[in-house]
Each structure stands twice: as C-alpha cells, then as structure tokens.
Design a binder for these strands. Structure first.
Lengths: 163, 163
DNA sequence: ACCTGAACACCGTTCAAGT
DNA sequence: ACCTGAACACCGTTCAAGT
C-alpha cells in the first residue's frame, strides 16, 4: 500500500478513498493481469492444440508477474471476469475434445492448478540457491512436456466417444 | 515470530538465540512436516501404485498444515533432508516404471508441482466465498483423478520399453 | 470526491545488557 | 548459552479534518 502510494505521490491512506482494502486491490490487479492471456479461436481445428495454447499463454503471462503468482493459488485462481472468460473457453475446448460433465469441471481445475502451480514454481524472483539456477527455457520445456502428459491423460481417460 | 515466542512464554527476540531468521525457521518446519509423508516400499509390485500412494500421502500431509502450503511453492518445495528422501523414492519408482533420464527429472517436477499446487488450492482455510465451498472430499476425488490422468500421460508418453 | 496528518496496533529484527 | 527491555524501521488501516 505504502509503496503504491509513493508511486502515485500521495499519502498511503489516500488509497482508501478508491479501494476498500489491500486484498480487494490485489484481486483487481490479479484479474487485470489475466486480460492479456491469449485465447484461441473457439472453432480451432484441434481443440487439444487450443487447450495447449491457452495454458501456455497463461503460463507466460503469469511469469511476467512473478510477485503475484503465489497469490493466485492462495485465492483459488482469482474470481474475476477475465478468469471466468478463460474458464469458459477452456470448458468449451474440453467439450469439443469429448470431455464433458463432471470430468470437465475436474479437468479444468487440474489444468488451472498445474499451470499456476508451475508458474509459481518457476517464478522465484532472486534465485539465491546453491545449486544450478534452473534456466527459464528448461522450465518452459518442463512445463510444456508436463502439459502434454496431462492433456494426453485427460483425453485418454476422461473423454467420451464423440456423439 | 511474536506468536511463537508467546507460545513459549519468552520474549520475541529470545528466538534469535536459536534461529537466525524467520525464513530459516520456516524452512526447518517445512521439512519437518514432510517427515510424516508415508513412502511405499521401493520394491512394491506396481511402481505406478507406489507413485500414486506417495503423492496422495503427501497431499494429505500438506492439507493438515494449510498455512504452510503456499510457502512450499514459493520456495520450490523445500530443500531439506525429508524432501530429498521423497524425491529419491519418487525417482526410483519412476525408473521402475520405465521413466529415466531427463524425462524422469521433468516428471518428478511435474508431480511435485501438481501435488503441492492442488494442496495449496484446496488449503484455503476460512472459505469466505459466496458460491458453494467445494467440499474436501470432492477436492480429494478431483486430486485423485487428476493424478491418475497425469501418471497415465507420463507412463504413456515418457516411459521407454523395459530393458 | 479526494486528499492530509496523526495515530493505532501490529510486524521482524538488532543491540546492549543481564544471568 | 540463553534470556530481557528498549528500540528501529517497517506494515495495513482508521479517524478526524481539510479542500
């Protein structure tokens, strides 16, 4: 709060004329960040490719705001308009891939947890460990492979034959 | 720090005779918690079942310490002796399932991120949302299904034929 | 409607001093 | 070796008062 106020060259308590609390402000910021996640066209040829693209874009966006990432998990992925838009798009793509009903809801949650979790894992800003720092391109490869495994498992197990 | 000191009925700064900082204390606590994760016998018949059991036990242990979970992701899963033991066991089980080399390292990281991430997602202590609170047994089912999908995908894609 | 100064109830941590 | 009192530099937030 005090840092934000300083950036705006106002007194700290001036913020409370615009925002009820720090938590509320963070919720707004969290959803704002999600606005820059690119959603694939819902009529993309291969819905699996669409799911992969959406999650990868979300991963990149989250990595651009490392300090915020841990908050997403703590608040269960930010219930804002943008978050809802991403959820809806994902659900549509899952349905087109043959995953519907309860399995779709569970798959959605699993994909969210995996993507945000991996971003939180990779975010660690300073990297003050003793062992090798684990380059971001290695982590991106790791994320991509894990996402492929996950989507593979979801479509292999949870998808019902196309009707 | 001050709360811990109060529980010990000492002055807050007395803790600094035993611990260099709050971060160091938390690192110790984090690894201590992992001590109660149950590891399956390494010669279990089906290594996939072993992996499932280990991750599920870790999930339960983490849920018993909701306040700590967000810290695990922030510190990349706590580099303590117990964390290392769990990593070694997982790597062994992955190898017995046919996942070796670089794929094994990536699969390990994916499993860690998924398990801790889901625990962080389910931890939310107070649950002060407007919509339905998402019962813990539903979340456990969700975790279990996602873990199955993930292991399915890993073994389907990353496993090399047994030699 | 939007800002300010002053204050409140907190933090983690340091330092000198005691036993 | 282990503790204490006092203090420092922080937090988020409230309240009354100003324009």
């Amino acid at each position: 709060m005090r840092a934000v106020a300083q950036r705006l060259t106002v007194a700290p308590n001036a913020l409370y004329s615009h925002v009820p609390s720090k938590t509320a402000l963070l919720d707004d910021v969290l959803d704002d960040v999600l606005a820059s996640v690119q959603t694939p066209a819902q009529d993309i040829d291969d819905p699996t490719v669409g799911l992969h693209q959406l999650m990868t874009s979300a991963y990149h966006v989250l990595l651009n705001h490392p300090g915020l990432v841990p908050l997403y998990l703590a608040r269960q992925g930010a219930r804002g308009l943008n978050a809802q838009r991403l959820g809806d798009t994902t659900t549509t793509l899952l349905a087109r891939a043959g995953v519907r009903g309860q399995a779709a809801g569970e798959a959605l949650r699993v994909l969210i947890v995996y993507t945000i979790g991996f971003a939180a894992f990779a975010a660690r800003p300073p990297t003050e460990t003793d062992d090798r720092p684990l380059a971001t391109d290695e982590l991106l490869d790791n994320f991509t492979n894990g996402l492929r495994w996950l989507l593979d498992g979801i479509l292999h197990t949870a998808a019902t034959p196309h009707r």
